[in-house]
């Protein structure tokens, strides 16, 4: 059971993270509203998230998912490497498969770096109180909006954020359809729909997450 379990863990945690991204993106969309409205809504929303016990559980599941996704992906990769100890001198795998599918691990590393930086900038500052303190807004909520807005006015950060949404798109495109197949979704015409859904989802996510900082920057 053990080996299959590893793939299932990668797939299940991945799918959970995919759902989380939808929620996350919808929150990011608030940033597109006029500043006066956006600040209030955004801060109220983030406070709600922080204080709801249900969301707390979900949040821990989220942290765990990220860790498990990485750990099991690592285990899977180690085994895969062992299974192919000698590489080919000439290998044109670009002719029979997509680049992203061949390089999920590499793409994953980029995303992991992004997550670490991202968490350091938001989560560590807001939740752990590390670094510069965060003020309160007019309603008395922690002014997360200010943190976000200032970061999104830093051109280096925006470039970093938006660029790394490209590998995220590739990762999601292959990851979504692949994880469902790993979990046993095999309906033939359903798989064709799944491929399109994955592409659509990945585009929405990477374009959505990637474009919002740029819009905020120029707002």
């Amino acid at each position: 059971m053990s080996l299959f379990l590893r793939k299932w863990m990668v797939a299940l945690t991945g799918l959970f993270l995919c759902i989380f991204l939808v929620v996350h993106l919808s929150a990011n969309c608030i940033l597109l509203l006029p500043e006066a409205v956006a600040r209030g809504m955004y801060n109220a929303y983030s406070t709600l998230l922080r204080e709801s016990p249900l969301i707390k559980v979900v949040a821990y599941a989220l942290y765990l998912s990220i860790i498990l996704h990485v750990v099991f992906a690592l285990l899977v990769t180690i085994r895969n490497r062992r299974a192919k100890p000698t590489p080919y001198a000439v290998n044109h795998h670009g002719e029979n498969s997509q680049w992203a599918a061949q390089n999920m691990g590499l793409i994953g590393i980029f995303i992991l770096v992004f997550i670490v930086v991202h968490l350091a900038n938001f989560w560590a500052r807001i939740k752990l109180g590390m670094g510069e303190g965060v003020g309160l807004d007019a309603q008395g909520y922690v002014d997360v909006y200010a943190v976000t807005s200032s970061l999104f006015h830093n051109p280096y950060y925006v470039a970093f954020y938006s660029l790394l949404m490209i590998p995220l798109g590739f990762h999601l495109h292959h990851g979504l359809k692949s994880s469902l197949k790993t979990l046993g979704f095999y309906h033939r015409s359903g798989l064709r729909v799944l491929a399109r859904v994955s592409l659509f989802y990945a585009l929405i996510m990477s374009v959505g997450f990637g474009v919002i900082p740029i819009i905020v920057y120029f707002k």
Binding site: R79, H93, K181, T182, G184, Y186, R188, L191
Partner: peptide, 28 residues
């Protein structure tokens, strides 16, 4: 043998063109 990553390369190189959907079916 390693894990399946669903790259789909196998289906392309298979002389009989056996679909990778078979792997998903096996997983189920």
């Amino acid at each position: 043998f390693g894990h399946c990553s669903f790259t789909g390369a196998c289906e392309v190189e298979c002389p009989e063109g056996i679909s990778v959907a078979n792997i998903a079916e096996m997983n189920a």
